[in-house]
Amino acid sequence: MAKNSISAKRKGYIGLMRALMVLSAALTCALVLFMIAYVLAKGLPHITWGLLATAPSYMQDTVGILPDILNTVYIIIATLAVVIPLGAGAAVYLTEYAANKRLVAVIEYAAETLSGIPSIIYGLVGMLFFCEFLNMQTSLLAGALTLVIMNLPTVMRTTQESLKTVPQSYREGAFGLGAGKWRVIRTVVLPGCIDGVITGCILSAGRILGESAALLFTAGVAHVVNGFFAGLAGSGATLTVALYFYAKERGDFETAFAIAAILMLLTLLINLLAWLVGALCKRRRNV
């Protein structure tokens, strides 16, 4: 009868599964919290004005990460400046122009393939193609161009997704007024994909910030303070590459953790931004 309850064996199974689920989720969250807390605790005390605002000097035996910060900023700007038009353009082609289904499939398959290739391979090919074949030497520019290829699928995907939300009726309305295709795209379609482009920027910035393997052999490891264009032409370490060198080659863990703490804070910031933009876009669409 209904008053009987389920068997002890079933109760055991349910309890076990429930416990495993809760434990796993708790473990995942605890890991994240631990990693953040550990890095911040170890790193924040070592972040000083001197560290942030100077270049390292062997002569005076001081350590500074100003060049690494600048290099990171330069490479993010340079990469985004190239990848946004390319990726957004590719997305526009796929959603607005492409009529040949096969071609679309090939392009999308290529994008998926790109997003699966490990960054060390990007670094290697970037070194062979940009640094050696195109003779750019080891430079931030070569690094940035390598990262352009890496981030192309991300920007393409986010732009494509936002293009899909532009109602077909807008396009039809504009065409109905006799506008040419390019005009329709410029006036109706492109403004609609701005949130996708912004999301793509944020996600790419996050990936560039965290990237190291692809930059090791393309952007190099120099620590010199330069202006934007001189910086791009020369070799330079980003924060992640610098962290690697301080930790692995120099054994200077204080500096390594200081950089890690900065990276962690920036990662938090980027996640926050991505979340805010996501929430904003959602609200705008619902209005």
């Binding site: 009868m1 209904a2 008053k3 009987n4 309850s5 389920i6």
Partner: peptide, 20 residues
């Protein structure tokens, strides 16, 4: 009341109820 017992009573196991 199902067979004389209230199916919303606290002791009722909803899984056994749905079996029947």
């Amino acid at each position: 009341l199902y067979n004389g017992e209230n199916i919303f009573a606290p002791g009722v196991d909803v899984n056994m109820l749905r079996k029947e």
